[in-house]
Amino acid sequence: MRNGFFSIAILAAFMATFSARTVEPSEVLKDPILEQRARALSQNLRCLVCQNQSIDDSNADLARDLRVVVRERLTAGDTDDQIIDFVVARYGEFVLLKPPVNARTMLLWGGPALVLLFGALGLVLWFRRRTTTSTEGLSAEEEKRLAALVDDTAVKGESD
């Protein structure tokens, strides 16, 4: 258990250094607050060469260029939204690793809730049907048949 914890901690430490290494020292801004904003922005921008990495993680050439562009615009005084708009205008909404909530992404964001709703609805219907069938009880004819069966086994049980 302790060993497992240590190996995970070591792995996490390695992974932290790997992700930190992609941003080259020459790219890092002097202002730590701007640099922090740059990191946060780049973590939500997709590298279009690798497509499943952010530009913060990727060492592709284009990712590096985009990191530099993000930092240049930050130093020029752009807001976070202006920078995101700048990149989206050129590469489309696909560059956003977290898709925006709008009419086109309604199904994407609402889908899980919709599935949950249908599941809950199905569950409610299923339980309701089960309880109604179980409280119906036996008809007079069924009672008679059951009694006959019970008598039959009782007789058989004695003979055994």
Partner: peptide
């Protein structure tokens, strides 16, 4: 030379 104009065109490959 810097690739800036290519970014303006949305070039990725």
């Amino acid at each position: 030379r810097t690739g800036k104009v290519a970014i303006d065109w949305g070039v990725y490959g």
